[in-house]
Design a protein around this nucleic acid. Structure first.
Length: 594
RNA sequence: GCCCACGUAGCUCAGUGGAUAGAGCGUCUGCCUCCGGAGCAGAAGGUCGUAGGUCCGAUUCCUACCGUGGGCGCCA
């Protein structure tokens, strides 16, 4: 099975000192399986299990290869299991040939202690790749709206995770700052007068400006002519036109930055790489395709026919790289991006966090780039596709006015709803504290709601559900974290003081919590492997519910035995750190009280 | 018409080539001298869209069909 280049790093991880018990077990058990099979490269097929800590399913597959009964194979593997001393306290054959495995408590305690002493709480690093990630991409002279939410939030989370495991990540915000609409926008700017237009725009009413220009364009033919000739001036580099264009771009990026800052994503002006940046490369794209013999004429346009695509009539579908009238389009620009990212930036991997409707377009662009030899293994491009945000009517979310919901309004509503909920539940907080916590909870809720469902699916935007303190939500996870902080506050014990404690695992809830904590690295690896942040969310939610069960059954401060208290405090501290780190990888902050 | 994605409990969603498919909400029943009840324990609720196929084993992989959404040459 082909795996994307970044994620498949389990082998690398296992060669380091891993703290993942399943990984250690797998590697130990592989030796036993290989002895029985008489060959190398046997996968023990380790899975977590509801009947033990883990189960090995490898015997069932191996039985066929050896022509033996699966149970016999499992028995034979069991006989070779001397290497599991120090890892498992129990190994038994069950059912048709499963091996049920129980970790020894000492083994788990030792691993927990190792993780607790690691500032990265068990997350390993991998050989570094240079990754360009294309996300957010709002349009100049248009307000950011709910349609930009997913690409911005998912992209930001992937950036954080990829960087954390050691990749060199280059963020690219491919803003829409070029093309025919700019003739119209610049002419409208001139009509209003620069000063007045700037006031208008700096008030944040970007959409109003755009709509006025559009209305005028649709109604007034002389304005259309002015707009068209202004585009020509812009593209030919006319200084005055460029100055006016710059004005529009600067006013817009000012707005973008305000949104990014409020939302807490990493994008800055340094990451801007708009369409205009590739303008000079566009003729070269066509020339290079021509020299390679890939270019064809079709209905007056210059096109490339990547195999495997057909149109409505069943005829080959072209990728148009130069229009009939000579202009370039977004395919040209996207090909220029590939060239720039591979040849100038020397990227190993190109990620495109772009909505699913663009799947065919991007597939064609990538195919043409491969045909042209610009995208060559092991370099690769991946479309990190995502579905729509839907309203309660299951249609694409709109505001009351019918326009897409503005990003700013969305964030403000989230924060004010969170503020009200916190005020009701914790009236003792000062107003300043409450506002700060509301910001973390409100924005965290929106981000988490977006990240916690499989990105390929559409999801229904629901304020009540995302801000609920129950279920798979940001507030639930943040609350679990805050409650742990509260334990340490109440006991007046420093978090750091318990980090060298080796926890003792006695109660089943302590073991469950230990197993959950030690699965953090695997969750992150899996998330990166599939570019699917919801996998990390699922893990964190499971950790939080496991912690809650522990908290319910295992009194931390009231136990009466100092050693138990120390051990449980160590488990608490580590849980809080994993929650904090995990949410941080999603771009979500964790307050110490709520 | 062709192509792509999706279809799992009443609702919103996880999950997997392996044993008995999970969670939250909602419904029902218990638990309170409880470190934050923003909780815990339990019950009910499913032919995993339908029909075939591969496999020792399929909800998972393959094919067809049905349903929903999207895409299908000069917008980006």
């Amino acid at each position: 099975m082909p795996s994307t280049s970044i994620g498949n790093n389990r082998e690398v991880m296992s060669s380091q000192t891993s703290t993942d018990p399943l990984l250690i077990l797998s590697s130990a058990l592989q030796t036993a399986f290989e002895a029985v099979a008489g060959r190398t490269g046997v996968d023990p097929v380790i899975r977590s299990s509801d009947r033990a800590d883990a189960q090995a399913n490898g015997a069932l597959g191996l039985a066929k290869e050896l022509g033996q009964n699966p149970r016999q194979v499992a028995e034979a593997v069991l006989a070779e299991c001397a290497g599991l001393a120090g890892i498992c306290s129990s190994v038994e054959v069950a059912g048709p040939g499963f091996l049920n495995l129980v970790f020894s408590n000492d083994f788990l305690s030792r691993l927990l202690n190792e993780v607790a002493s690691d500032p990265r709480v068990g997350i390993g690093t991998v050989p570094s790749k240079r990754v360009v990630i294309d996300y957010s991409a709002p349009n100049v002279a248009k307000e950011m709206h709910v349609g930009h939410l997913r690409t911005t939030v998912i992209g930001d989370s992937l950036v954080r995770m990829l960087s954390f495991v050691g990749h060199e990540v280059i963020r690219e915000n491919h803003i829409g700052d070029w093309g025919t609409p700019f003739g119209m926008l610049i002419e409208h700017l001139l009509d209003l007068g620069e000063t007045q237009a700037a006031d208008h725009l700096s008030l944040g009413d970007l959409d109003g400006f755009y709509k006025q220009a559009r209305t005028k364009f649709d109604a007034d033919e002389t304005f259309q002519d002015r707009a068209r000739s202004r585009v020509v001036l812009l593209q030919s580099g006319d200084a005055e036109t460029r100055r006016l264009w710059n004005l529009l771009v600067n006013l817009s990026t000012h707005h973008f930055n305000a949104v990014y800052k409020l939302l807490g994503v990493l994008l800055t002006d340094d990451d801007l790489m708009g369409e205009s940046a590739y303008n000079d490369l566009l003729p070269q794209v066509v020339n290079r395709l021509d020299k390679l013999g890939l270019l064809q004429q079709s209905a007056g346009a210059d096109v490339v026919f990547p195999p495997g695509y057909t149109n409505r009539e069943g005829e080959p579908l072209p990728l148009i790289v130069q229009k009939g009238q000579g202009g370039f389009n977004y395919a040209t620009s996207d090909l220029a991006c590939v060239i720039d990212r591979v040849e100038r930036l020397q990227a190993d991997l190109l990620l495109y966090v772009v909505g699913s409707p663009q799947a065919q377009h991007l597939a064609m662009v990538f195919d043409v780039a491969r045909m042209a030899g610009w995208l060559v293994e092991p370099n690769e491009a991946v479309h990190v596709a995502f579905g729509n945000v839907l309203g309660s009517d299951r249609k694409i979310m709109k505001s009351r006015s019918g326009d897409p919901l503005k990003f700013i309004d969305l964030i403000e509503e989230a924060v004010s709803r969170a503020d009200a909920a916190i005020a009701a539940k914790n009236p003792d907080l000062s107003e300043t504290e409450r506002h700060e916590i509301a910001r973390m909870v409100g924005i965290g809720s929106v981000k988490y709601a977006d990240l916690s469902t499989d990105r390929v699916r559409d999801y229904v935007f629901d304020w009540e559900r995302m801000l609920s303190f129950d279920g798979n939500t940001a507030p639930y996870l943040q609350y679990a974290h805050a409650r742990i902080c509260s334990i340490f506050r109440r006991a007046d014990i420093s978090r750091v003081s318990v980090r060298d404690v080796v926890p003792t695992l006695v109660e089943p809830q302590e073991r469950e919590l230990a197993l959950a904590l030690l699965a953090f690295n695997a969750a992150v690896v899996d998330t990166i492997d599939k570019y699917s942040p919801h996998r990390l969310c699922t893990y964190l939610y499971d950790l939080a519910t496991t912690f809650t069960a522990f908290y319910e059954h295992c009194p931390v401060l009231k136990d009466g035995y100092e050693s138990t208290r120390q051990s449980r405090l160590a488990l608490c501290d580590l849980t809080a750190r994993v929650l904090n780190q995990g949410l941080a990888l999603l771009g979500i902050e964790t307050p110490e009280q709520m």
